Amino acid sequence: MRRTLLACSLALLTGLAHAADIPETDWLQLMPPSDRKALEEMPEIDHNSPEAAGTFTQKQGGLKQKGKLPPVMFSTRTVAALDGKQIRLGGYPVPLENDARGRVTEFFLVPYPGACIHVPPPPPNQIVLVRYPKGMKIDDIYSPLWVTGKLKVEKVSNEMADAAYAMDEAKVRAVQDSDL
């Protein structure tokens, strides 16, 4: 009996240690190899647009992509092995919903800052919808976040963007200087 309790205690402590030590997932791991290859071979993209000049408006489509971009820039293809996997992903928030106190409760996590005004925006398989009912104050979309939780393959589409992944019940925190 004592050995069983000891074994259970060690398993629990090991599990907690592993949860704290989840390695960072690289954004490119969210893309199937064929998409990564297509992205590497993609021609240079022109950034001359109203958004690039700082005149972004919601009517221009938010993160939704328009124009003549290569198909990989619209890809919703995912990596099935990541479905249900605990990951830690660093990225930048694009706030979507706030609670009554003004705290962000839902946001898109994207791989680079300013994606809501950058041209072109990331492909859907490089956008993760994070549902965070606890909410958090986000003063600066250019400040990176760590998001840790169970990744789900889930296609989400709204006025702002299309995403191929989502996370619920994630842990969210600002990236600190000590993380770098």
Results as ranks from 00 to 15, higher is better:
126 Q>G: 11
119 V>F: 14
140 D>N: 14
137 K>A: 14
133 P>D: 06
114 G>P: 09
118 H>W: 11
126 Q>S: 15
117 I>L: 09
117 I>E: 07
124 P>K: 02
144 P>V: 04
116 C>D: 05
126 Q>A: 14
137 K>E: 14
141 I>S: 05
130 V>D: 04
119 V>N: 12
142 Y>T: 10
116 C>W: 07
144 P>N: 04
133 P>V: 04
138 I>P: 05
140 D>P: 03
117 I>S: 07
138 I>L: 12
147 V>G: 09
125 N>D: 11
122 P>G: 07
145 L>K: 03
134 K>A: 11
134 K>C: 00
126 Q>T: 04
129 L>I: 10
142 Y>M: 06
141 I>A: 05
142 Y>E: 10
131 R>K: 10
131 R>Y: 00
129 L>Q: 13
131 R>A: 01
131 R>T: 10
113 P>M: 13
141 I>E: 11
117 I>F: 15
147 V>Q: 12
132 Y>H: 15
114 G>F: 02
124 P>T: 02
119 V>P: 09
147 V>S: 13
140 D>L: 03
119 V>L: 03
118 H>Y: 12
114 G>R: 07
142 Y>L: 12
131 R>V: 04
122 P>S: 04
132 Y>W: 07
113 P>Y: 12
147 V>C: 10
121 P>D: 01
146 W>M: 02
114 G>A: 09
130 V>F: 05
114 G>L: 09
122 P>Q: 03
121 P>N: 01
121 P>Y: 00
146 W>D: 01
114 G>C: 08
146 W>H: 07
116 C>H: 13
146 W>Q: 00
127 I>M: 11
142 Y>P: 00
115 A>M: 04
137 K>L: 13
141 I>Q: 02
146 W>I: 01
126 Q>I: 06
135 G>T: 04
142 Y>Q: 06
145 L>E: 08
145 L>Q: 03
136 M>D: 13
133 P>N: 03
118 H>T: 12
117 I>W: 08
138 I>C: 10
